[in-house]
Design a protein around this nucleic acid. Structure first.
Lengths: 319, 319
DNA sequence: TCAAAAGTGTTATCCTTACACCCATGT
DNA sequence: ACATGGGTGTAAGGATAACACTTTTGA
């Protein structure tokens, strides 16, 4: 890029100007278990599964899919490319690595095999993202004052104002209200403010925020995946990839709430789902739900073709 | 990926398992001139600007930005990563290349410099995507029958039905209505059906569809950029990156219509823009508009911070 | 009987859409 | 005068949000 100022080459496949770099794949694999949104992690060190980019497969997608299915032992429902990371010093390493990250949705069955792999609730890494039980105390008690302090360290008045405004928008301070889709912006703001471990490498380490760090920039990648999934469930029927073949409407609602990190209005949720004809009754009922038996539903695969655009809109939050 | 079945490495930076590959960057640079949505192309061969990935820059984004600004001679307003392509045989070449593609928005000024670079309307490559003058004749006259024929070549009844259904949804046949966001799906369907030059490499070449081909898979990348931009203008105020500093509301509307490929309802468009407080009056008027002088507006940069989420929603089409 | 969850019905509100109409300028 | 584009108002329809209430099971 640097020196090629005058003549971008129309076809530079195999050109001498290209530099060879290492490429690997990183997967954000998501499942929902017992109402918790989980990501597959490796080891106690808290890393996302990753592997070297292999040249064998016809496409990136198929290679990733094959690898993941071998890892987890069962098929991946949905795959989507997230982002390609190539910033210098990503891993605090001299070697330049490009990582192509993917989001994969699955059902977490028969995966307990290895002790090295574990499904962990993603709220272990982002405790401020879970608003299902109301606004988490950590927001007002810890994040807000720290971000306020950071804002006030800014150079001039404009910078200080700008910092606080960004923080307030991202975290919903000053009566602004929470927007669950801003997961990545929030993480990047905390990083910029030096409030997460990954952002304070070498610098003075304040006592850390709640929320576990991950290896290298994996927490940022996980945040990217969460944000993408939270926007996606609103206009594409992808939740079903995380559900068992049959389920009750409440189970479906709990899964959506787990992903979105907020509660939704029951009746309106049900109406939305049913009027969009996303599901059909199986005729069976589930009696083990603690109350009145619930009708069981299955996803109508027909809509995948017909409404490849349609989606699972979320109704407004309930208090 | 292939062999690493049992132990995804937690940190494999510089691991022996990583393979070195060529990496380059490809940019979809967009500007709107005289009501036409344009992409920057290289040479008569119809390629997107591309260059080798350089290791010098701190981030991919900044590297791309610097390179593009040197190319075009003026600043790039907005940059966004599109997709990373790494399928085998992308360029009909034995060498494996990974291309990281970007979408960039600019204003096309002072760019006429080199004859090798040219802004071309993207509808030269996708004539079926322009519905501003009504449904293009090419849809019913050429695309529909060809896709019908392709569908009927399918193996069994289910496959034939599925093919036609996908085509009908993508192109809005059978009373379904046009959805301008499906640009990429449409191109990929035509590719799959062997109806575009790029998809018929080596096979029998039918007389080609209208719409110019591009080098390698660049037309697919352009389609990716168009689709992304068409969805983006509906919820983020990115159109302004393509506008001059001051503009009339009709100019703004024409730019949106150029990108979306369809007309929008004038009054509702204006109300949307104004009630979202995206613009403010400059106090001046433009008298060279052919009718009553129009108020001039400028973008309210304040909303960029305040409503990083807000956007330019499109009202329904007008006949 | 009570708790818990499944379901049904109805109303108020907002946003989108669509239509109708008037204003100011150049030719 | 008329064509062109600028600009305002308002009513109809649909989707969303919010609330109240009934039903069916297990403990």
């Amino acid at each position: 890029m640097q020196h090629d100022t005058s003549s971008p080459t129309e076809r530079n496949r195999g050109s001498d100007q290209s530099h060879d770099v290492k490429v690997d794949l990183i997967a954000v694999l998501v499942a929902v278990t017992d109402g918790e949104p989980c990501a597959l992690t490796i080891d106690k060190a808290h890393a996302l599964p990753s592997g070297p980019f292999e040249l064998g497969h016809r496409s990136l997608q198929s290679g990733l899919r094959a690898w993941v299915e071998r890892q987890t032992g069962h098929p991946l429902g949905y795959i989507e490319q997230l982002y390609t990371f190539a910033d210098r010093d990503r891993a605090g390493d001299a070697q330049r690595v490009i990582s192509i990250s993917y989001l994969g949705l699955t059902r977490e069955e028969g995966t307990e095999g290895s002790a090295r792999r574990r499904w962990r609730s993603w709220y272990e890494y982002f405790p401020w993202e879970d608003h299902r039980g109301g606004v988490p105390a950590v927001l007002a008690d810890i994040l807000a004052p720290r971000l306020r302090a950071w804002a006030e360290q800014g150079g001039d008045a404009e910078m200080r104002h700008d910092r606080w405004q960004r923080a307030a928008i991202a975290f919903g301070f000053d009566e602004r209200g929470w927007n669950e889709e801003l997961t990545l912006q929030r993480y990047e703001l905390l990083y910029e403010a030096g409030l997460v471990e990954e952002g304070t490498r070498g610098r003075e380490t304040e006592e850390n925020l709640p929320g576990r760090a991950m290896v290298a920039d994996h927490r940022r990648i996980l945040a990217t995946g969460i944000a993408r999934l939270r926007t996606k469930i609103k206009y594409r029927p992808v939740v079903f990839e995380l559900m068992p073949p049959v389920f009750t409407l409440l189970q479906l609602q709990r899964a959506v709430e787990a992903l979105a990190g907020r509660l939704v209005h029951k009746q309106n949720f049900r109406r939305l789902i049913e009027q969009q004809e996303l599901v059909e009754e199986t005729g069976e009922t589930a009696t083990d739900t603690g109350g009145r038996p619930a009708k069981l539903f299955r996803f109508r695969h027909a809509v995948l073709a017909e409404r490849s655009m349609a989606g699972t809109k979320l109704p407004q939050s309930r208090p």
